[in-house]
Every structure is written in C-alpha cells, then in structure tokens.
Amino acid sequence: MPSETPQAEVGPTGCPHRSGPHSAKGSLEKGSPEDKEAKEPLWIRPDAPSRCTWQLGRPASESPHHHTAPAKSPKILPDILKKIGDTPMVRINKIGKKFGLKCELLAKCEFFNAGGSVKDRISLRMIEDAERDGTLKPGDTIIEPTSGNTGIGLALAAAVRGYRCIIVMPEKMSSEKVDVLRALGAEIVRTPTNARFDSPESHVGVAWRLKNEIPNSHILDQYRNASNPLAHYDTTADEILQQCDGKLDMLVASVGTGGTITGIARKLKEKCPGCRIIGVDPEGSILAEPEELNQTEQTTYEVEGIGYDFIPTVLDRTVVDKWFKSNDEEAFTFARMLIAQEGLLCGGSAGSTVAVAVKAAQELQEGQRCVVILPDSVRNYMTKFLSDRWMLQKGFLKEEDLTEKKPWWWHLRVQELGLSAPLTVLPTITCGHTIEILREKGFDQAPVVDEAGVILGMVTLGNMLSSLLAGKVQPSDQVGKVIYKQFKQIRLTDTLGRLSHILEMDHFALVV
C-alpha cells in the first residue's frame, strides 16, 4: 500500500459497493488471473465517493441489488447463522422517566444476534452475496479491517462455511474481542490505534497488504460494500417497522461504517417519512454534520465500534436529520445504567446512543415513540467499562463513588512517597548505550525526554532486548525507535489509591 493515498477510480455505471474482489474501477472485475494482476490496485480507499443510485421515491424494481426479506425461524435451526436477525424490541421503562421523557422509549437489542452484535447481519450478508456472485469459493481466505464486531461476525460465518479468516484490528480494541476471535479460529493482526486510516500501518493498510500477498484472499470491505446497508434496509428496518406496527417518530443510532443508519433510515424514509433520524458520533470522530460539531482538541476516545477519521463510502449522511456528539463518560455511564436499571447487557456504544436519545427525544410528546439501536453486548468489555477499576483509572468514576473498604494508605498523596527525580535518556542515544546505562543503574525503564525536557515516551529494558533479539533494531539504532509513546501519567497530588489502580493494569506510571 502506498504512503500517498491515490484516488480510487470510478467506473461508468453500476453501484460502487459490489461485493467481491475490487477492480481499479471499484466494481467486480472478471477475466484471467493475468488481467486481474495487471488491473487490481494495491488498495482502494474506504472513503471513495459513493456511486449508489438510491433515491427517495425511486421504484424498488430499479435497484441493481439482490434483495432479501426477513424469514421466520424454524423450530430447529440448521446452523447458528440462522440465529442472525429477528432481534427483540424491548421497552426501556426507567431511564426515559428518569430523564423526563414523555414518549415511549424502545430498544432494538442487536446483541441477541448469534455473534453478539449488529455486525453479524452485514457479515453474513457480505459472505452470502460474495458466494452468490462467485467471488468467494471453498478454501478462500477472508481478510477484514475491523474494530472487532464485524470480525467476530465474519469469523463466526467463516467457521460454519469453512473459510480461512484473518482479522486486522487496532490495538485499542478489547482483549475479549481478541479472545472470541481466536476461539472462532480467526487469525488476528493488531495495528497502532493512532495510525491514520490511509497510513500503511493502519488496520485498513495492513489488511490490503495481506490481501496482495495471500492468494485467493478477499477483503469484503464493510466500508464500501453495498451488502452492509442492504442488510439493514432489507431486514433490520423491516423488523423495526413490523415490531412497531409502522408507528415510530424517531430513530437514534450510533454511527461507525454508517451501514446501520443508512440502511434503516432509507427504508424508514420510504415507509415512515415523518420519522426523524438521529445520528450519534463520538467526540474525536469526524462523521457528524455540520462540520463545526467535529471541532475539538480530542483525537482519541475509548468507546469502541463507532466514529472514524474518514467518511466511509457506505455512509449516506443525507438521510440523517440531526447529529449529536457523545463523550466517553456519558457513554459508559449510560451503558452501566442500562445494565443495572433495565437488565440490558449492552456495550458502550449503546450507552452513547441512549445518552443522546434522552436529549433528542425531549421534543417528542406522549403517545409518540423513539427507537434506539443497541449494537453489541457487554461480553466484549468485561475488563473495560464493566470494571470499576478501569473506570477509575480512566477518570470516568471517582473514588467516592465506590463504597468498598480501602487499605490505610489509600488516600495518601503520591508526594508522600518522597520520590527522587528519575533517570532520563535522550532519544538520540543508541539502544546499546541505553541498555548499558539501565543495567549500570539497576533500572528496568526510563523516560525519554528531548533537550527541552519534554517527555516523549518510555523505554524499557525488556522491550529493547526483545527488539534486538527479533532483529527489529540494532544496538547502533537510536533509542527513539523503541519508545512507548502511550503511558499513564500521575500527579504528586493524586492518591496512592489512584496509582494502585493504574499499576494493576500497566507496568509503570510516570509522575509529573
């Protein structure tokens, strides 16, 4: 994948999101292997301009796509893939009243899908469409860049269908997702969380590099694949309309690839034109409109599966009536509230959605109805927002919020430890010299600072030695090549209790 991002070429006709291997024109390309080798690009942008032909009021008969309808489940399912879809609609009884809503608040519980998330729908649909058009064949390999849930859905379907599955996901995604993927037989590649989507090191860039190296491999490409919004247009939206008897006044959905909100909203605009569509985008993402909503100094966020630093091709923002931004604290607070007060075992993005819903639905009156999409299960986040310690460490809970008995030293300040200034190293000294210094002084790690004293990161003896043994660096290389740029900081005025929580999850903390 090139470091400079080429513009994806656009073909003359058809839909841009065809499933299957992508040609340089962004659509299915038939021909000899030699032709494909000559024409197939190194990668295709996940934010390529959409060429979708959908228009409100256009006859369904003019759609270029294969459409399906929700099917009634048999008493005995032939395999677990038949437990994807037909998820329950559940009334939220307490939270709406707590925040003064007059309307009825309903939750579409997508964590009841077989793999635990709304992404099971698009995973199965992308595979079925690729099999139907002859792209996927027995023994082929599926590769997908994902925040985890699409990966789980694909790995689940691949396990049943017999495909090899490789999932490329950023490091910030939970260990629970990784464990589930491994249990399903998927191979996992992790990428830096802070890598831009168009960087060769991003999950998108690495996935395309693997595709170019592995024979008979395919990126189904949830960011561009029409099967993504079509899955929701054909099934999720129809289920909502049936469950609500066609009567709903507002739908609120958090947005990642945009397939969920695009597919549902398009069908609702056709069948229930008075329904307002509300999009939820986390602070630090750029999906919301108008652009002024996205202006923030924050560039990272903890909530998973929603928000991006690019506009995915499948996201149709014209069908969203209003956007709201959400933050991590309210997302996790509301997710825990949904679990504790409503018994809905949902993930953090569901918290984002409901946090926005109780604001947006203030305009609705008694007798009206708001539906929220709860995308995934708490299963993926047992060591994250479900953990009091994690919430404390991230600053989303305060010590006084917890009532468990603490040891005698818990409320003492870090400054009472009488710490001395640490050994520091410059980023320009060599790895070999740094190892000598650390061994001589008896230290395992040291902060790396520039000549102005600005902290650049941390270097550890173990990481340097393993990097040297693996051949990633040489003793003569500058130590700046092996620094940890993500590390926890703590102030002298913070409590030892807070430091204790940090050290339970990290090997060190830097006192500043």
Rank of each mutant, 00 (worst) to 15 (best):
M89K: 06
H22N: 14
M126E: 06
I127Q: 05
L42H: 09
S61D: 05
L184F: 06
P78M: 03
K94Y: 10
I142L: 09
L124K: 11
G115Q: 07
R51T: 09
T135K: 10
H22F: 15
S27I: 11
K172N: 06
D245T: 06
K98A: 11
S32R: 14
L241I: 02
G259M: 00
A231M: 08
P170G: 01
K83L: 11
E29R: 13
C15N: 02
A114K: 06
A130M: 00
M250H: 01
N225C: 00
T262V: 11
G151I: 00
L181Q: 03
V255F: 02
I240R: 00
A186C: 04
S32N: 04
V10N: 13
L106A: 10
W43T: 07
Q242W: 05
D179P: 04
R209T: 01
E144Y: 02
E9V: 12
E34T: 10
C272A: 15
M126Q: 02
N113P: 06
E40H: 10
K83D: 10
I122F: 02
L106G: 08
P16M: 09
V10Q: 07
E171F: 03
I84T: 11
L184P: 01
H218M: 09
A183Y: 04
E128D: 08
L28I: 15
A24C: 12
I80M: 14
P88W: 03
R266E: 07
K119V: 00
C52Y: 02
D179Y: 13
T193D: 10
Y223H: 00
A253G: 11
I261Y: 04
E104H: 05
I240M: 06
T13N: 11
G96A: 13
G139Q: 05
A107W: 02
M250C: 01
A265G: 13
S202W: 04
H67Y: 01
N194F: 13
S147G: 05
K119S: 01
K269V: 02
K267W: 08
W208L: 09
E171Q: 09
C52S: 03
S254E: 02
C275I: 14
P49T: 11
I152G: 01
G85P: 00
R266W: 07
D249L: 02
E213P: 06
P170Q: 02
I264T: 12
N212Y: 04
G246F: 02
G153K: 04
T235S: 15
K72P: 09
P273M: 12
G134A: 10
